[in-house]
Design a protein around this nucleic acid. Structure first.
Lengths: 344, 344
DNA sequence: TGCCCGAGTGTAACCGTTTCCACAATCACG
DNA sequence: CGTGATTGTGGAAACGGTTACACTCGGGCA
């Protein structure tokens, strides 16, 4: 038999209202009564039932997190960022991952109804626009959109400066003399991937180079895809002198492919990534990449959501673009911005 | 104003009981009535309130996951494994990470009371024994212990064969002629780390070598720690010829340190890891390691828990040790089990 | 002395479901 | 054509909390 607030009340010789007041620190309770109640609760090992509490207060103290099919360190870092912030503010996290299609997201969202106070939704598919528009979101549910190609005035939004980051790293390469810069793209119809490509193209044009279709090879953000794509790019004639991967995992796969082809990085081929996952500095050669601050991104998403929740009706959604920074290491071969010997 | 089951009932001209029956597919309902109710629900965009449902049924359809301070791919893989299984069985996941101390675990556990039907608890701290013994677990809560140094008959347990895995990889090295095999340890007081060290020592002894304290360097499972530890081990005289890292992240850090010292892997120094995270095959040289099947481990934990939940009172907890397999790639320099030139 | 006020407490309505039980209508069957 | 089972439905009591409201009881103040 479960122990309820009523059992505690009986044992302490008070009413349930008083017990509730003690546990929620609401309303005045005599010090001596308070002590008796705490004691009774401890003896009975009482813990309030949160379903009942949620039903009554219409709050769950829980945040929902809906993620696409993320892998590796990006996934763990973002969850950690969110979780740490949520914990600090005494909130729980319901995580649901691997949602790629709109129907899946909609279903997951329905299932979360009543379980969460707010939602962090990361849906980098480019068709997110319609998803968001049709989102079966009761107006009681706060939503923060993460990396969505959408600016819906109903929701807060948080986005990475993908275009700026990609421009920066590509400009770094062209600035060092690279003329044949290839790119391993992210998944088709992915917002981040799309923007990173736009940044890449913009940077090429800014350097007076025309983007060429054969220099852009598809990928899907996995190490394996990076490996495959790089292998294909190496067969081009003339061969590119630099490969920009749309994320670090693919860059690492590319490093592997380049080496297997008997070429050296960065002497024969520069390779750069995007994200700056923790491991990036420990691969060989240490990866030049674009730092995103993934954990911080998650933390900010959680903070935004908690803030919105606290503000209630008064909240005015905002849209924030989080800046990125270029991190130059060795894999581009131009740490000091001087062209590598092979290009001189 | 929220829309409740009552609104649906009114609109469809039936009682709430009938609406409930339709939504839960319990009890007979006339086909025509059923249609009317579904229609009314759709028009009103009704979604059942899960707090109320939980309160009434005493089930939450939610699993709790309590994790220590995990990083990188181990974290993401295990969550993914659990999540995919839970989703398939229509369960949600409450995730709470970064719990290192017993008090934190106990607090998190208390806070989950009433929110989850069961719990997956990963607590590789060696003092988990007392934690588990004192666990404030109501007998209504099913628990699966993951990588705990504990066999409590009240709970299911799932463990990696750390000792066997470590033995296998070290025996592979000694079998190839290595005589000075150093190890980068995991965190102190960590169960997995502890067992991996035991496997390492056992394998050395089996090869007629005496473990030496200076060959064992501390670490904490991060890339950075692996880097530091390897740098320290390289200063030993005579220098070890092989480094066994207690996990892949540290092995990757070690690779980086060895290279920076101007040495080659595997010719001058063999380096091996543990876990076989996805990235292990893409670093240079591809990492020889011990495959754990992290995602599968998570999936099995979730399956065990769901099964236990389904069986109810009748469930008899079991303790399972998941085998590991040696994955030989290039970083050990003895892919074909022949000693590297430097040792010949 | 009478009145007001605040501290401390209890009663009971409510939150939105599920489910037990009762009941009406229909149907099969001897 | 009665009877017992079956199908379809509704009423209302849980589930375990929170909280609006009412009440008592002293103490301060005019």
């Amino acid at each position: 038999m479960r122990v309820t607030i009523r059992d505690v009340a009986t044992r302490a010789g008070v009413s349930v209202a008083t017990v509730s007041r003690v546990f929620n620190d609401s309303g005045p309770v005599h010090e001596e009564t308070r002590r008796r109640i705490r004691e009774a609760a401890r003896e009975l090992r009482y813990a309030p039932n949160s379903a009942a509490r949620s039903l009554s207060t219409r709050r769950t103290s829980t945040l929902g997190v809906l993620l696409p099919d993320l892998h590796g360190e990006f996934f763990s870092e973002i969850i950690r960022g969110i979780d740490l912030t949520a914990q600090r503010r005494h909130h729980h996290l319901i995580v649901s991952s691997s949602h790629n299609h709109r129907s899946e997201v909609a279903a997951a969202l329905r299932a979360m109804r009543g379980r969460v106070d707010g939602l962090i939704l990361m849906s980098p598919a480019v068709d997110a626009e319609t998803l968001v528009a049709e989102l079966p979101v009761p107006d009681t549910l706060r939503v923060v959109l993460l990396n969505c190609a959408v600016r819906d005035p109903r929701f807060d939004g948080l986005e990475i400066d993908n275009i700026g980051g990609a421009r920066a790293v590509v400009e770094h390469l062209t600035g060092c003399g690279h003329r044949r810069v290839a790119m391993i793209l992210g998944p088709a119809r992915n917002h981040d991937a799309d923007e990173r490509r736009r940044g890449y193209r913009a940077a090429l044009r800014a350097a007076g180079l025309e983007p060429r279709p054969e220099w852009e090879h598809s990928g899907d953000f996995t190490d394996a895809a990076g490996y495959q794509a790089a292998a294909a790019l190496l067969r081009l004639v003339p061969r590119p002198t630099a490969i920009v991967a749309a994320n670090d995992a693919m860059a690492i796969g590319a490093l592997s492919a380049v080496r297997e082809a008997g070429l050296r990085v960065p002497e024969d081929m520069a390779v750069v990534g995007f994200d700056d996952v923790p491991i990036a500095r420990y691969v060989h050669p240490p990866l030049t990449t674009v730092r995103v601050g993934i954990g911080e991104l998650g933390a900010r998403a959680a903070e935004t959501l908690l803030e919105a929740l606290a503000e209630g009706e008064a909240h005015r959604p905002r849209h924030v673009v989080v800046p990125t920074t270029l991190v130059v290491r060795d894999s581009c071969g131009c740490r000091d911005r001087s062209p590598p010997a092979s290009l001189a």
